[in-house]
Write a protein that binds this DNA or RNA. Sequence first.
DNA 1: CACCAACGTGGATACGTTTTCAAGCATCTC
DNA 2: GAGATGCTTGAAAACGTATCCACGTTGGTG
Lengths: 356, 356
Amino acid sequence: MDRRATIKDVAEAAGVGVATVSRVLSGGSASPQTRERVLAVAAQLDYRPSALGRNLRQRRTGGMGLLVPDLTDTFHAQLAEGVLACARAAGEPVVLGSTGGDPEQESELIGMLLEQSVDRLIAVPSGDEDTWAPAIRAGMTVVFADRLPARPSSDEDDDPASRAVNDLMLLDGVSAGARPRPLDVPSVVADDRAGIRTAVRYLRGLGHRRIAFLGGPGHDRRAAAFGAAVGAPVDEELVVFATGSRDSAYAAASGLFQSRPDLSAVVAGGNVLGEAAVLAARELDLRVPRDVSLVMYDDVPWAELCSPPLTVIAQPGRDMGYRAAELVLRSGGRRPRGVMLPTELIIRGSCGPHRP
Amino acid sequence: MDRRATIKDVAEAAGVGVATVSRVLSGGSASPQTRERVLAVAAQLDYRPSALGRNLRQRRTGGMGLLVPDLTDTFHAQLAEGVLACARAAGEPVVLGSTGGDPEQESELIGMLLEQSVDRLIAVPSGDEDTWAPAIRAGMTVVFADRLPARPSSDEDDDPASRAVNDLMLLDGVSAGARPRPLDVPSVVADDRAGIRTAVRYLRGLGHRRIAFLGGPGHDRRAAAFGAAVGAPVDEELVVFATGSRDSAYAAASGLFQSRPDLSAVVAGGNVLGEAAVLAARELDLRVPRDVSLVMYDDVPWAELCSPPLTVIAQPGRDMGYRAAELVLRSGGRRPRGVMLPTELIIRGSCGPHRP
DNA sequence: CACCAACGTGGATACGTTTTCAAGCATCTC
DNA sequence: GAGATGCTTGAAAACGTATCCACGTTGGTG
């Protein structure tokens, strides 16, 4: 097992300098005959440039980082597939981290990526802006996907409700009062406002009045959109949040059903929440859609397998990942402000008319 | 935005040589007071050693590669989460690639990892042994998870059936005749033989006689185990293979149901296949389990959401990933031959008694 | 007192690449 | 014909780290 050929070996074998070999392989200028000879020798030696040398020289690692809360969340898996597809097309590596929805782990993973000199990062953020400031300061090119980091928590507004208001203002492009947005990071997100609004209107049209929102970490925008869609007097009890885990999602769903037997419809902010809602409803002998209607964010393959098949707000997870990867790779020019992808309400069988 | 501090900066600020700093940070020997001062200065400068420099020097990238066919296959997502958890605990990066079940893409990704000098790799292989020989030859520490690569195709045996026989012999630890196994790679796999056998016996106990196996790429071992479990005269029509895509899985399932209306039970070799089987059965107005019983490999969260909830052969995906990562990291000593994890038949509602 | 072992330390080198710089050479222009 | 211009080329200098080696100091033993 002899070591791999280096650029030096190629240079010697071809009778040229290393600089010439580098130029030829990087697409620089060289005379046709030199180019041909170098190429031939390189192929014959099965030479592959070492990313290590190159990276050290240019003081940056190629490729990109990808930070996701949880891969077993099918939507995140779809998003990751999109990123991987784009990276594969570009021949670039992707270093992946799973944060478990925990800002602290997220922070550690950012540190790890910094150490690796990975300077391009796609993230479905879990922490708030304070978590992300270090990465930005370190000169990373960051693109957020699916969500934006929450505003940093401060004394006055640390409950989901007021965060939701903040996010809603953000949603409108309105500067959030005295605190201007410190992070200027492009993002690829779905049109949560339209998605939620369409779903709520659909449920309204079926006669539902008491509609609940079941959210997870990072669903503040959706919660805000929900509040806006149902109208001014939001029943705070009808907006509940779980933490990242499946257990927590189940507990939140079950708690919601039990504490508010009067609700007749639920909007789940993500597929893990939707899964929990189905499970909790079944456990409590609530029939879907007879007793409670359900619409779930994310169209995942198994939504169709449920019975009844789940009515969902579909967002293009794969595209989202692909676009984010494109954005982070072509960050040469000025970066676009952000991309918003459309959502689509796919009506299956989990919503029925309200029965008083 | 000034550049990050280097070891040189630390050395100067601490009034010592770079070698000393390196030693202190790598746990080498140094006098207590020197160590303390260096540590203090390093912390004060917020110094983080650059992985680039270290990697180049040691001619290898830390961390590990992970190659998986498809992340939207929930089982692979679970496995990936296991790998990531172990890597996170070790503070090592993971570079991920998704092969789409295509040996060619797999080969390209291996090349990419080689270029990155990633010398540790966990793979759910799609290609055969010929695909993997280059990686081994290049000195990579490879650990296969969930499956083993198929034998290289040759003139005599390129159909699934005879491959299955080969794999069965492998399963038994019997050398496959004249062709000894060329790859000596540790692996972490589930006890497919026991898992399948338990499932088949269970179905048999319910009265089923015509049982089909629906497999995907890489399920040769399971197909072989299935053949062994149902007994000598295997009805070849009852063992069908799909390629990696969901469409192909659906087509295979639908074709199976249509061509063999006499079958009364199906064993799906993976969760994507199981998903396809449920969909195809529904489309053909076959009721589960009344008309056809179904047991699916992989316990995934949504198996419980189906109606009826799916009876599954559970294999510990997360553990599998975690163990594989441990194996590939602690490859210092002699590597163990491989790990086999237990499976468990989880009986839910998708299997019923045979109705003639 | 002299010698040796052990230890802490810093200078120097190598890892494989890209990029700068200047030199060599041919062609073109006045 | 002399100077200017363009192109190709190779030597050399980084990039940030780990490690070899030699040097000095200390403590102990002969």
